[in-house]
Amino acid sequence: MTIRRLWITAVYLIFTILLIIPLIEIVRGSWADGWGGFTQALMRPQSLHALGMTGIIVIVVTLINTMFGVMLALYLVRAQWIGPRIKRLLNSLVDLPFAVSPVIGGLMIVLLLGPSTVIGALFEDAGFKVVYALPGMILATLFVTFPIMVREVLPVLQEIGAQQEEAASTLGAYSWYTFWKVTWPSIRWGVIYGVVLTVARSLGEFGAVLVVSGNIMNKTQTATTLVYQDVENFNVVAANGVALVLAVFSVGLLLLMEWAKKRKEVH
């Protein structure tokens, strides 16, 4: 009994030290100069720009990732024109971004599409900057978040099997109709769960974006890289202010995720 109690205390202690105290510190830090200091930190042009960049990246990445993730999951589970060997290969490749450090992911993009490479120079000649610009940052975040949607939807598709879809086809329904009327209701909660995770991950992505963006203020700076720069500049109040905004979003997403998880279990 005493050992069990000890364990429980230890868990609470770790939980407090790792999560609660830092959160309190962020809140306290951002209010160190009162309401004025907090709003001032957020109203700086670079803060507004950085939060805007983060917003754009989150929206674009989530949209692309959701579409491609669901599509790839469908192909990996259902497509008969992909051989089982290629499927297995693709299936393991999907997890690559989880295994590779985001910084390395970002570096790969710079090495492939940077201004000094062939492809990068080609894009630049066409007036389209990839690295050290928004497209590169979106690409980097896409790379990091890519497995999330596939991994959420794939097991659900495997579990429901192809029979309901086959039944729909014998009843005269073609693939688009079948997807929306038969497949979608079954995978819906998995997709929502995946969207929440993708948003959370792209909101907080730091390493890959830092490498690709070059962290240029008012140009390629996101909320997370701004926090990093503020800390470097000993502007603790501003760093805490931006961090608080990110933390509030994350907590909100977490609650949404819990709700989605419950619904997923029901259906």
């Binding site: 099997g161 029979q163 309901q164 086959e166 039944a167 729909a168 014998t170 009843l171 009327k181 038969v182 209701p185 079954s186 259906h267």
Partner: peptide, 14 residues
């Protein structure tokens, strides 16, 4: 123009 009854019925659950 066929009707198919599956072994596990494959009814639409939702």
């Amino acid at each position: 123009g066929i009707g198919f009854v599956f072994q596990n019925y494959a009814l639409f659950k939702h």
